[in-house]
């Protein structure tokens, strides 16, 4: 549906835009405490209210968007950058020991949710936003490896690949020249989905203190701060929560819309 794509892109751009603007301007300095004005509710001088230190929530949301988007984007990059070549390689060597090892390795990584990886990394190196990136990135690798392998395998069965082999092209060349362009749409769509999952995961990790550390603002940590205040200042929990929901919703809608837009076969009505 076209509407999904438009609405999704709109929502996503709002947050990307807010993140970009925050580099040059925020309504208030996001770290500035103003104890006399703490816990102000929405409306008024502070549009989205203030937290228990009197910091402006809108400013923190804008800067927090930066963290979320950066973490999720880099994590998707790691997942794609390593996962796609692995998947294409496994497909090219389908049925061989290498393929088996890559796939079993994938299954194994699936047994380590990003939170568990983050726990391990934090235990060893201490908490930071980099942890979150690595943890989510590692978990993305098998996701991309698996879908690119699956798509590549069905392409390898097609006659045009056979024709390229008859023309004497190597498996690596065929993967780049024939397979990759035909899986790009799929990767774009999956990339959008993983991006949104990355934002959720980053929020979760920051919430339990395994992600971005103070003073780097992050939506997850804003929620952790809000937890003890939830009865007296519900807006402290509502605003970052809605920010997460709307961003993720936007990305998901965009992913669905892109899938329908890029791959007309999915629009075919079946009997």
């Amino acid at each position: 549906m076209r509407n999904n794509l438009i609405l999704g892109t709109l929502l996503t751009s709002i947050f990307v835009f807010a993140a970009l603007i925050s580099f040059v301007w925020t309504p208030f300095p996001h770290t500035a405490m103003d104890i006399p004005n703490k816990l102000q509710s929405m409306g008024g001088e502070h549009l989205l209210g203030t937290d228990h230190f009197g910091r402006d929530i809108l400013s923190m949301i804008m800067v927090g968007a930066r963290t979320s988007i950066a973490v999720a984007l880099v994590a998707v990059g790691i997942g794609m950058g390593l996962g796609v070549p692995l998947g294409l390689f496994a497909a090219a060597k389908h049925g061989s020991l290498v393929d088996e090892i890559i796939m079993r390795g994938n299954d194994l990584v699936f047994a380590f949710p990003s939170l568990v990886i983050a726990i391990l990394i934090t235990a060893v190196f201490g908490a930071s936003a980099i942890n979150a990136i690595i943890a989510i990135g590692i978990f993305n690798i098998p996701v991309f490896a698996r879908i690119s392998r699956g798509a590549a395998l069905s392409l390898w069965k097609r006659d045009f690949i056979l024709a390229a082999r008859v023309a004497g092209k190597s498996a690596a060349r065929i993967s780049v020249e024939h397979i990759l362009p035909n899986v790009t749409n799929l990767l774009i769509v999956q990339g959008t989905i993983q991006f949104s999952l990355g934002i959720l995961a980053e929020a979760g990790l920051s919430y339990v203190g395994l992600g971005a550390q103070p003073p780097t603002p992050s939506w997850g940590r804003m929620l952790a701060d809000a937890q003890t205040m939830v009865t007296i200042a519900p807006h402290m929990a509502l605003v970052p929560g809605l920010a997460i929901i709307l961003t993720v919703l936007g990305l998901n809608l965009m992913g669905d819309g892109l899938r329908d837009y890029l791959d007309p076969r999915l629009r075919v009505t079946r009997i």
Partner: peptide, 17 residues
């Protein structure tokens, strides 16, 4: 192999779209 060519069955699957 250069001296051989092949024509496949499936007119829809034998070209990269």
């Amino acid at each position: 192999r250069r001296k051989m060519q092949v024509v496949f069955q499936d007119p829809f699957g034998s070209f990269n779209p």
